[in-house]
Computed example of a mutant assay.
Amino acid sequence: MKKKTKAAILASVASVLLVGVALLKKLRRRRRELPRAPYVNHAAEREEYINSVLHGSERHCVNQLRMKPIAFHHLCHTLTEGEHVRPTVHMSVTEQVFIFLHIIGHNVRFRVMGSRIYRSTETVHRYFKIVLRGVLKLYRALIRLRSEDTPPEIRNSRRFYPYFKDCVGAIDGTHVRASVPPEIQGRFRGRKDRTTQNVLAAISFDLKFTYVLAGWEGSAHDSRVLNDAFARTGGFSIPNGKFYLGDVGYGNKNGILSPYRSVRYHLKEFSDRPPENAQELFNLRHSSLRTTIERGFGVVKKRFRVLDAEPYWSFPTQVKVVLACCVVHNHIMGVEPNEHIMEDAMNQVELSDHQQETQSHRESVEDSRSWNAKRDEICQAMWSDYIRSGE
């Protein structure tokens, strides 16, 4: 009886095993029939994408990296030569700079950039920071006053020469979006209902930045930011006898030539009625020449969309990104400035908030007597020539 029971058990186990084997074979056959996802060579796809941008049309490269291929390769060479950015086992300098420029040019999130080039978010973030530090090391080499000679834009114009022969550029502040902790947002709110940082910049007439100071709160007055720039060690300095064009908010002081207060100034105010006295003529030509600063801000903000969008990184990084954008802008202007971004921005220059702001909203700034006398001297010489020549 026991032998029969044991045999029955073995028979049952055997039948179960046979059924199991049959099911496994069936499942395997089904698995072989399921379509597999195609194999993607991430390294090859990444290289093909980067090459399509760098070796395609110049316009496509400008659209993607905000500069022509010649400027891109020159920037890579400069960063490599100075050992500011180094190739690694996993990533070339070309790819590192490619990632950085694409992010600041289009305000692309790290994860989006990572998915586009088959890199992890952490990897993109890490190399972005590396290139950011490398670009900032070029600040002193690229952002400085190149020459104290009279700029050709002034020398070759009867409207500006010899009256502004000692002028080396224009100075103003602009507001860049900022993201800060709630407890300090009040300090960063300016006239508009959003948080910004007030960025001081001096620009020469070839549209290159000669000084940039970022990081001040949006509520800070321009004159306060300028005083800080002068006070910093190795900060803003103006060559002896030279000056920048500023607006009334800075006051008429040593090295800053400002327009007359309570006198027509903006170009649109003269559209239907020419200047009627010496002060109006001075303000008109001062405004015409000072549009350089608006063109400079317009170009750099149009080129780097990250400057006009809500930031998603820490505030110290936001400040560094502003400076880096100005450094890269100067690099482009020195290598290959003529491209459609530049042309579009130049055609779309509008008056900034600072130009439109009335004196009643500004802090009282004391003028320098000697510079008031200098301005009067220029003004009278300009008016005498204007009356004599009729233009």
Rank of each mutant, 00 (worst) to 15 (best):
Ala8Leu: 09
Val13Trp: 14
Val16Cys: 13
Val19Leu: 14
Arg29Met: 14
Arg31Asn: 05
Arg32Met: 15
Glu33Asn: 09
Leu34Gln: 09
Arg36Ala: 11
Val40Gly: 07
Ala43Cys: 08
Arg46Val: 04
Glu47Phe: 15
Glu48Asp: 03
Asn51Arg: 15
Ser52Asp: 13
His55Tyr: 13
Gly56Asn: 06
Val62Gln: 06
Asn63Tyr: 08
Gln64Leu: 05
Lys68Ile: 14
Pro69Tyr: 07
Phe72Trp: 06
Phe72Ser: 00
His74Met: 07
Gly82Arg: 10
Glu83Ala: 06
Val85Tyr: 03
Arg86Leu: 07
Val89Pro: 01
Glu95Cys: 04
Ile104Tyr: 02
Ile104Asn: 02
Ile117Gln: 01
Ile117Trp: 01
Thr123Gln: 09
Phe128Arg: 13
Phe128Gln: 05
Lys129Glu: 08
Val135Asn: 01
Lys137Phe: 09
Leu138Tyr: 01
Ile143Pro: 02
Asp149Lys: 14
Asp149Phe: 08
Ile154Glu: 09
Arg155Asn: 09
Arg158Ser: 15
Arg159Cys: 07
Tyr161Asn: 12
Phe164Glu: 01
Lys165Trp: 03
Val168Ala: 00
Thr174Arg: 12
His175Val: 14
Pro181Ala: 10
Pro182His: 08
Asp193Tyr: 09
Arg194Leu: 08
Asn198Thr: 14
Val199Pro: 03
Ser204Gln: 15
His221Cys: 06
Ala229Asp: 13
Ser237Gly: 09
Ile238His: 04
Val248Phe: 01
Ile256Gly: 00
Arg261Ile: 00
Leu267Ile: 12
Lys268Phe: 08
Glu269Leu: 02
Glu276Ser: 04
Asn277His: 08
Thr291Phe: 08
Glu294Ser: 10
Gly296Ile: 10
Gly296Thr: 03
Val299Tyr: 09
Val299Asp: 02
Val299Glu: 09
Val299Trp: 05
Val300Thr: 02
Phe304Glu: 00
Asp308Leu: 11
Trp313Glu: 12
Gln318Gly: 09
Val322Tyr: 07
His329Phe: 11
Asn330Phe: 05
Asn330Trp: 00
Gly334Trp: 03
Gly334Asn: 09
Val335Ile: 11
Glu343Arg: 14
Asp344Pro: 15
Gln348Tyr: 14
Val349Ala: 03
Leu351Ser: 05
Gln355Thr: 11
Thr358Cys: 01
Ser360Trp: 00
His361Asp: 12
Arg362Ser: 05
Glu363Tyr: 06
Val365Asp: 01
Asp367Glu: 14
Arg369Ile: 05
Arg369Ser: 10
Ser370Ala: 07
Asp376Gly: 07
Cys379Gln: 03
Gln380Tyr: 11
Asp385Thr: 05
Tyr386Gln: 07
Gly390His: 10
